[in-house]
Simulated assay, not measured.
Amino acid sequence: MANAASSPGPVEQPAHTDPRLALMDHALGYLFPAALRAVAALGVADHLTGGARPIAELAESVGADPLNLRRVLRLLATQGIFVEDDGGRFALTPSAELLRTDVPSSFAPAVLMITDRSFWLPAGELEEAVRTGAPAFERLFGMPFFDHFARDAETAAVFHAGMASTSDPENPVIARSYDFPPGAVVVDHGGGHGGLLLAVLREQPEVRGVLFDQPHVLQGHHLGELGADHRWSLVAGDFFAEAPPGDVYLIKRVLHDWDDEHCVRILRHCRRAASDRGRVLVVDAVVPLGNDPDPGKVFDLLMMSSFSGRERTRAEFESLFAEAGLRLTRVIPTDTRLSIIEGVAAG
């Protein structure tokens, strides 16, 4: 790639680092996502599509201070995001390419969502969540997350764009990971703009779909892209109070937002509304046991700081299902960070 100068790659750390220095590095780790947010917000990657550029020229293009921009890019380059050549010019790397806003696979909206103040500020108050068992979000913003989300159009726009950036690449993979019964009515329960349901309808031409969410959310749905309007419908409602009739219920990245009581309420409504051949498919991370690193263990703290929910283990999903009158039948891995947790009516 002409615009990505030869990159030395991430700098390797010594095998036996002084544990005090390692702790120091961990404590300073929050500065990396801060730097990542800064370049995403400035649109730096969009100004490097033509190749490497001197920092003064790049800074002028994005409206930044050249010294400080160089310092931020220098840090990101240590992890292979951008690269500085011997002449002091910066260029894109494969990772930095994903920060461009003009590519279909752009991940810039996801970076801006994850580092948005609605997540960033409560994360800085994680101690409060650990002490009290409740997220700091409501104290900081004056209301629970989803109330703020519904009232603040700017936050909602950031959230929807970020979720699309995260979900669009994984939805077709998830849709191909499950054999939906021919003729089934698939309900995307709390499905947002319908990205997963759209992927299922494209992959499974013999099923029909229902997108179920709140009215203001449904206004931004994408199901019209299918080009077969007879195969889907919109139903507005509250998943804590009801569920539309259907055969298969998709519940993607919903349960991790809520505590057990609210999750059981959602699942019960699905079980009651489901047909005799009904199935509930929770699409979420399944946290493994043991001490090995896992993205779900990291994301779990995001849930802790801003929401009342959490990422769960298989045993915790089994408990939720049982309380809702469901039996967990299997956990199906996908080639994403999410699994499909299948349940059917118990007894």
Rank of each mutant, 00 (worst) to 15 (best):
A110Q: 04
E125T: 03
R70G: 15
G133D: 13
E84D: 01
L76E: 08
L75K: 07
L73A: 07
A64S: 14
P135F: 01
S118V: 08
I114C: 06
L75G: 08
V103A: 05
M143T: 14
R71A: 15
R139L: 14
L126G: 00
L92R: 05
A77L: 04
G63E: 01
A91F: 05
L67W: 09
D65S: 12
A136M: 09
G124Q: 13
R131F: 11
I114V: 15
G87W: 00
V103W: 00
S118L: 10
L126A: 12
A110T: 07
M143Y: 00
M113P: 00
A129I: 06
L140N: 12
A123R: 12
L92Y: 02
E138G: 09
G87D: 15
P104L: 12
P94H: 11
L75R: 13
D85C: 11
L99W: 00
A96W: 02
R131K: 14
S118A: 15
A77R: 03
T101K: 11
F90D: 02
A110S: 09
Q79L: 10
S95V: 05
A64T: 11
L69T: 04
F137G: 03
E127K: 05
A77K: 03
A108C: 14
G133K: 03
A123Q: 12
L121T: 10
F141S: 07
L140G: 09
R70F: 07
E127I: 03
G133P: 10
S95Y: 09
P104E: 11
V103I: 15
P122W: 06
E138K: 09
P144R: 03
P94N: 07
F107A: 11
A64G: 08
D116E: 13
G87I: 00
W120P: 00
A91Q: 08
E84T: 04
T115Y: 04
A110Y: 07
S106W: 01
P109V: 05
P104Q: 12
G133N: 13
G80Y: 11
M113S: 01
P104S: 09
A123N: 14
A108E: 06
L99C: 06
L98W: 03
A77N: 08
T93G: 08
V83D: 04
M113Y: 07
G142S: 12
P135Q: 04
A108L: 09
T93Y: 09
R131I: 12
G87N: 10
D65N: 15
P109W: 01
E97D: 15
L99K: 02
E84L: 02
A64K: 04
D85F: 09
V103Y: 00
A134P: 01
T78V: 08
V130M: 14
E127Q: 13
Q79V: 14
R71H: 10
E125M: 12
F90L: 00
V103E: 01
L121H: 08
L67R: 13
E128I: 10
L140A: 06
R100E: 01
T132D: 15
